[in-house]
Amino acid sequence: MSTQARLERIFREVFNDDSLVLRDSMTSRDIAGWDSLAHINLMFSIESEFNMRFVGNQLAELANIGELKALLAREMSRAE
């Protein structure tokens, strides 16, 4: 599965929305229900799925979904 598809599955589960579609330009403000609870659940789900760890609250410092995907790509290439 592509990073996009894996991320999309995580977001759909965390935000309980089967029709959610992720675009690179999206930010936390574009997704309904992105509160502190969802933020923590999202962080944990991404860390579990991609077998990586964010440094501190790095997830909150990313500008948008595109940056998140770039970060995950870097993490995965480092793991190889």
Partner: peptide, 15 residues
């Protein structure tokens, strides 16, 4: 014990 699955399953049951 897979936490992300639990969260999603619990939300689904609530819905």
């Amino acid at each position: 014990d897979d936490y992300p699955c639990w969260v999603a399953a619990a939300a689904l049951v609530r819905d």
